[in-house]
Design a binder for these strands. Structure first.
Lengths: 353, 353
DNA sequence: GCCCTTGTTTCCAACGTTATACAAGATGCC
DNA sequence: GGCATCTTGTATAACGTTGGAAACAAGGGC
């Protein structure tokens, strides 16, 4: 049933290697021979066995992308971009989702797909530095997202502090002074991350506006439901902010839903800024002002990092040192801060390295 | 650098096969031998080369899922479910997106990942029956979604006609009589699919309500933007329906945005029903009534079909004949038809085979 | 006409794993 | 104690491919 090079070779009356040469477009094959072999290939319907090729070549042409949750449109959109960029480099993407569990993230980073994937793009949530330090797999790894590890791996993230500050500054410029932050981590002591919260604090400090703890609300995760719960909690606690800066768009949209249920108008009563610029934020009854990371750039940088390092490995060059790469971002101003009638976008900070 | 069975065997002073036996938990290994080999494995940090294993075993444990677009939350959510179910069967999922292009879909169905994937779950959009008929790859294939091909492949889809009828019936029950359909295909002559439109027609016919052509609007794709454009077109044409049944939730939400911009209230002026029950539909200013296909069941049936056929192939049994599988659906009634205050869900039709 | 060069095809050996067949050692039975 | 039986470990051959070396054919220069 299965047809291999050997079968084609017999049919064409040549050696296996000649067939292989034809398949791989090896230059020194006479046209006559090429057509003869090609006919045998067509007649038998030969398809190369990629697994065997991979074994022989030592690489598979597959890179993995591991994100916390595909249900989150940000990651889905990013995944789409990564798949496209990878295809341009003739790589295929194997998608994993870790559900944000530390165990899953460790498993993935340790390379449990040993020798099936050539490289890995990981967007970690719970992974700890020591987990990564213990990594033995030699496949190139790139880290995505807010957390920093200070380990010799390329790290790709927009300047989260600058982005958060731009968002908060926008709200301050509009005259808002009681700006809540939605989506802090429960265990705020552990986290070395959450630059967005730091950005919020920094910008408020610069304007001399007190950063009240009561205006910071923690969430379990960062989806619609978490946003709704957090917003309800905030309002129930007696706080009435005049603006909300949410960890991401899902939280922002979940929060806006609660505002709407309670008769609070956006942006008149409460202005809202999100983060991620998912498609959804452009189509609500009130479109969402949000920080738009350059997803295309993120995808491009991530794939190029992995592919570049693979090339170095292959040529036995010394790989270039690991880098912090900062794609650009934009603050997209929409109705949730400006109200109906205006919608605009400003160029952001952060250079695309 | 790389450590193989051979290295471990040398270190432990045993044969390669013995190490292999230990790695694979082959029963007839004395405990003493097992620990000795295990120590060598640990010391050298051996990881099996899965590519070699795949070549030897003839299967990879990878199935591909090809969907039109990951940016569409329906497919992203479905993909998440498929990944989880596949993991339970010890399969990994390779995700492709075809962008709804026929060429891409042909490529995928022809098995361009030859021998890398054991099976394929494909959600086609433009693929034609003749493309599939010409398929030579022998990897099991399952088809997902609205289109029917009448070819010997398992096909998994909810009863789209019944689902559409349930949606339209719901609107009729609420007293609506001018019910627009948003999201027909441009080339309505070609399409053998679009059961949702047929369902719309059928239910209207049953109630003696004329199915006006002017109330059917075609779209290029089926995302937010297409919905907005279509709704604007409909309204600009002078039609003012009292309800809209959209091809999917994205179209419905895009349409609602336009209604909101034009001062039309949902559901007072226009009631809206979508299709897919994506998360987004639960968190808008007006939550969306929608047909909720049982995504878990779809994912389960799809994976089980592929895995089952792989098992048959392996045991050289004759595979069972191809089937039409109909997972269940639910009509989830929310504010876009009922208004604020009530939200409910009714059990749907369609048996889970 | 011969040798050398160039160009084309073939042979062989891997890549790392597992299946099969077999050898060797231990045990049980008469 | 010898023979059959069972247990445990080993050698060898694949799986399908590609890279390198070697073999072969043809063409050209002297």
């Amino acid at each position: 049933m299965r047809v291999s090079l050997k079968d084609v070779a017999e049919r064409a009356g040549v050696s296996i290697k000649t067939v292989s040469n034809v398949v791989n477009n090896y230059p020194h094959v006479t046209p006559a021979m090429r057509t003869r072999v090609q006919r045998a290939i067509d007649e038998l319907g030969y398809r190369p066995n990629l697994t065997a090729r991979h074994l022989r070549k030592g690489r598979t042409g597959i890179i993995a992308l591991a994100v916390p949750e595909l249900g989150n449109p940000y990651f889905a959109e990013l995944a789409g971009a990564v798949i496209d960029v990878a295809a341009q480099h003739e790589y295929t993407v194997l998608l994993d989702h870790t559900q944000g569990s530390r165990e899953q993230e460790i498993l993935v980073s340790q390379g449990f797909r040993s020798r099936v994937i050539d490289g890995l793009i990981l967007s970690p949530l719970e992974l700890e530095p020591e987990d990564l330090a213990a990594r033995t797999d030699d496949a190139p790894l790139v880290l995505l997202g807010e957390r920093r590890y200070d380990l010799p791996y390329d790290h790709i993230a927009i300047d989260n502090i600058a982005a958060a500050r731009a968002a908060v500054r926008h709200l301050l410029t509009l005259g808002r002074r009681r700006i809540a932050f939605l989506g802090a981590r429960q265990d705020r002591t552990v986290q070395p991350a959450h630059l967005r919260l730091l950005g919020w604090q920094a910008e408020l400090a610069e304007w001399g506006v007190p950063a009240e703890d009561a205006l910071v609300t923690a969430t379990g995760g960062w989806d619609h439901e978490d946003g709704s719960v957090a917003m309800a909690k905030l309002l129930d606690s007696g706080q009435l902010p005049d603006a909300v800066f949410a960890y991401n768009d899902l939280v922002a949209i979940g929060a806006m839903r609660v505002m709407s249920e309670r008769g609070l108008k956006v942006p008149e009563d409460i202005a809202v800024v999100g983060f991620d610029d998912i498609t959804e934020s452009r189509y609500g009854a009130v479109t969402l002002t949000t920080v738009a990371p350059d997803k295309q750039a993120i995808a491009r940088l991530a794939v190029e990092s992995v592919v570049g390092r693979l090339k170095s490995q292959q040529n036995e060059e010394t790989p270039r040192p690991s880098q912090e790469l900062q794609p650009g971002f934009t603050l997209v101003e929409r109705e949730s801060t400006l109200g109906r009638g205006a919608s605009n976008s400003l160029p952001g900070h952060g250079a695309t390295t």
